[in-house]
Each structure stands twice: as C-alpha cells, then as structure tokens.
C-alpha cells in the first residue's frame, strides 16, 4: 500500500478499554417465526482487522450484520460493539459504527454532497474536517462528476460509492458492509480494498459479508463461514484450509466446508 495515501482518521475519544473487541457476539441466536436464521453464534472481532463473513444465500450473514448494527434484536444472546452493550447503550455504540447495506438508502431528493452533509451533521463532524474527508474520498472514488446531482439519477455503483463516502465521513471505528463491491468497476473495487486495509491499519475494524470470495481472499485478516445459521469455520485463510483439509483457493475451501460430507470423498488437493 503506498504511503502517500491519506489515512482515514479515527474518532478522538478512545474505546472504553484498549483491549476491548470491536465486536463481541455471545451465544447470539435469531429466529424469524419458524425459521432459525442464526444459531448460538459467538464471535469476537479485534481492532485493526478486516473480517470477512461468508456463507451461502440465506445462511444468516446479513441477519448477523443487522444484529451487530442494532437493527435487529437477538432472540437470545448479547451483542457488544466497542465495549458498549447494544441492547442497553445502542446509541453510544452506534457513534462508532458505520453501516453500508447491500442496497444502500439514500434520500433521492438530496444531492450526493447534501447527503454527506446530512450524515456529517448527524455525527457532529466539524465542517472543515468533513470537507477534507469528502474531497479525499470523492477524488479516490471518482465522484466529482455526480456529487452535485440528485441521488435519484444515480446508478447502483454511484449509490454504493456515495453510501461508503457518507459512512466514512465520521471515521468510524467499525465499518460494517454488506456486499461492498457489487456493481462497482474494477478500479473502484481496488480503491475500496485499499480503504479497508487503511482502516484496519489505522486501528479500525471492517466487518463485511460477501459472496465475492476474491475480495475476502485479498483483504481479510480472518474469515468466518456461516452455514444454516451455524458458524462452521473461523480463522485465517490458512487455518480454514487446514479445517477443510484442502490446500487450494478460498473458493474451493468454501465449497468443501459448505457442501458437507458429500464432497469430502473427492480429491483433497488441487489439480
């Protein structure tokens, strides 16, 4: 990573405890009617790491992310973010979070710049600091051409860029992103990968869920795989390879782990 790129800043105040995990899920379960979306999930994400959460469709990834942001309440178990219990101190926890869902919400009758300013005011970021951050992110994500147009005219990719910019305007300690690179061009994907690494380098945490295994392989320090609500694997890519007893690409490791016993009789080594 080139050194001359500006580093995202973190909020001035420290977390309650330097050793406190950025995210701590303790025996978290979530039930939607008859469907058990997440089962007894325990997970800790440390400051300074990029964590990728993988799993097949309907495995419980987005539900976990939404419980971490406080949008959903767990049926059982507890969630802490930066040391704050989400159930009791949700507002304090949310000051440290930024969440970019897979379909980001943007007020269609605001321009991109007005939306960023709204987020700035919501988090109480000083105007000058926010303007500097917006100039930097706008240039890196190539947003200058549309920042002053109404958001209703944006493509999905433009909305993704704007949502990410607004999310980073208060320099969150924890960035939670759901499918961060869908609909983005290769150049923007590269910039986003760089930004994720920069956040981790500056002591922040990135918690992303994705189906794009390449980005997980490229930037994630640790990877968790969830299947039918169970966390079936957790660790670095190397540790996952050992768990799967398969020394290949993440895609093959993922398929091994999620296909179950049926696939385990096949070759355990890449061709």
């Amino acid at each position: 990573m080139p050194d001359d790129k500006p580093q995202p800043e973190l909020p001035s105040e420290p977390t309650p405890d330097g050793a406190t995990p950025a995210v701590r899920l303790e025996h978290v379960s979530k039930r939607f009617g008859a469907t058990q979306a997440v089962r007894d999930l325990s997970l800790k994400l440390q400051a300074g790491e990029v964590f990728a959460f993988l799993g097949p469709n309907g495995a419980g990834k987005t539900t976990t992310l939404r419980m971490t942001t406080g949008l959903l309440r767990p049926t059982s178990g507890r969630v802490w973010v930066c040391g704050y219990a989400m159930a009791e101190d949700g507002r304090l926890a949310k000051r440290h979070i930024a969440y970019v869902p897979d379909q980001p919400f943007i007020y269609e009758k605001l321009t991109g710049r007005e939306f960023v300013n709204f987020t700035r005011d919501m988090y109480g970021v000083p105007k000058r600091l926010a303007a500097e951050r917006l100039a930097d992110l706008g240039a890196r994500l190539d947003m200058d051409g549309f920042l002053d147009q109404l958001a209703e005219s944006y493509s999905h990719g433009m909305k993704q860029k704007l949502a990410l910019t607004a999310a980073l305007i208060h320099a969150p300690r924890l960035l939670i992103v759901d499918e961060p690179i869908v609909g983005l061009d290769p150049r923007t994907v590269r910039v986003i990968k760089d930004i994720f690494r920069e956040i981790a380098h500056a002591g922040g945490t990135v918690f992303m869920c994705t189906h794009t295994l390449d980005i997980a392989e490229a930037v994630a320090d640790r990877i968790g795989i969830i299947h039918e609500g169970h966390l079936i694997a957790l660790g670095t890519l190397e540790e996952l390879r050992q768990t799967a007893a398969y020394h290949g690409r993440l895609e093959d490791v993922f398929l091994r782990l999620t296909e179950g016993e049926g696939a385990r009789g096949d070759d355990r080594h890449p061709g």
Partner: peptide, 14 residues
C-alpha cells in the same frame, strides 16, 4: 456507565 468517556455532542440536535 461512569467509566466510559463522554461522547462528543453533535453541534445541532438530531
């Protein structure tokens, strides 16, 4: 939670 440092208040009300 007295051990938690004070939050930076937004300049305007929500």
């Amino acid at each position: 939670m007295t051990d938690i440092p004070a939050e930076r208040p937004p300049s305007r009300s929500d």
